[in-house]
């Protein structure tokens, strides 16, 4: 029995990665949920919006790097991100003007918006491949670790190490900051409250003098900012590849739906539920069980519920169960 080493393995390979991945999913799901709450449709182009914002961030990062500017200990992408956010916001607002505004005037049903967002998704997708190509790009520079497995072993004297990568730490901290700022905005400011009111009861918000076009603009600004931040965090932590963001759409929507579409708290909680489930189900428990059981009890094989190749099946399964058992999600979605 060696509980401490078992815990170290769990922390290193399950808890820390899931916290970082959950932070990224939460940021992505928040954007999806905001758009759903205000514009009342599932924006399938959100993954590509993330990719676009991240791509712009990378282009600016290259520019900075070639000018000899770097973030030092921190990734240079963090300095480039504000520009990425700005350009992504402009793209989202431009798209709204050209595409969604038309359907709003027509008072189209949500499914038309949804199909429209699919078209937008393909357009963004092509645009991104045209500009940066389909290949992997490295987004993270600066210090790789806050502390390494070796540091930890020396400090604790355990056989198992715990490593904490800089990008994981940044993902978690940035997510906390963004979520806190967003909740402050929605609950404490007049504009934020008017957004919640519009999401709750559009007609009554109009009767109270709320300008719907202004609410829509703010929703896109927030969604595009969150998308760029989420995309950059993911890109730094893993890698940037346009195709990956399309795949991320499933866990992101699963997060938003599990939490309750339209509910910001739900999006955050849903993000962590999906991240922890995905990693816990594909985690190889062999080592942990080895530490927790005496001697030769450990069976052969990795003791893994599902191979990592099937990690997306986890989101999918959770999604199906939630839609069957509690379609409104944990926090009863529909409104911000």
């Amino acid at each position: 029995m060696d509980i401490l080493n078992a815990l170290a393995v769990l922390l290193n390979f399950l808890v820390i990665p899931a916290l970082a991945y959950g932070s990224q999913l939460a940021l992505g799901a928040l954007g999806v949920t905001l758009i759903y709450g205000v514009l009342r449709f599932s924006n399938f182009a959100h993954g590509e919006l993330m990719a676009f914002g991240t791509m712009t961030t990378i282009l600016v990062m290259w520019l900075l790097q070639s000018a000899g500017i770097s973030g030092g200990f921190l990734p240079t992408a963090l300095i480039a991100m504000p520009v990425g956010i700005l350009v992504a916001v402009l793209l989202a607002l431009g798209t709204d003007r050209l595409v969604y505004k038309f359907y709003r005037k027509q008072k189209s049903p949500p499914v038309i918006f949804l199909i429209g967002s699919l078209a937008v998704m393909f357009f963004y997708n092509g645009l991104i491949r045209f500009v940066i190509g389909p290949d992997d790009q490295n987004v993270a520079d600066g210090a790789r670790f806050i502390f390494t497995a070796g540091d930890f072993k020396k400090w604790s004297g355990l056989a198992e190490g715990i490593a904490f990568r800089t990008t994981q730490g940044i993902s978690i901290v940035v997510a906390i900051l963004c979520v806190a700022a967003l909740f402050w905005f929605l609950n404490k400011t007049k504009t934020g409250k008017s957004m919640r009111a519009y999401s709750d009861n559009e007609n009554l918000a109009l009767l109270s003098g709320v300008n719907p076009e202004k609410v829509v603009v703010i929703a896109w600004v927030l969604a595009a900012s969150l998308a760029t931040i989420a995309g950059t965090m993911y890109g730094m932590d893993k890698t940037f590849k346009p195709f990956i963001y399309l795949q991320l759409l499933l866990p992101i929507f699963a997060s938003a739906i599990v939490g309750g579409l339209g509910s910001p708290i739900g999006a955050v909680v849903g993000g962590f539920i999906i991240a922890f489930s995905e990693i816990a189900v594909t985690f190889a428990y062999k080592k942990v069980i080895g530490y927790l059981t005496p001697g030769d009890w450990v069976p052969d094989g990795l003791i893994q519920l599902l191979s990592t190749d099937y990690k997306f099946a986890v989101s999918f399964a959770i999604l199906v169960v939630v839609l069957l058992v509690r379609p409104t999600g944990i926090f009863k979605g529909q409104t911000i």
């Binding site: 007049k190 409250k193 008017s194 919640r196 009111a197 709750d200 007609n203 009554l204 918000a205 709320v210």
Partner: peptide, 20 residues
Amino acid sequence: THNVFTSMSVEENLEMGAFI
């Protein structure tokens, strides 16, 4: 019908009344 913001507190409902 639908004459209150159900997800918002009573005070926030009144604040929304004063939005303009």
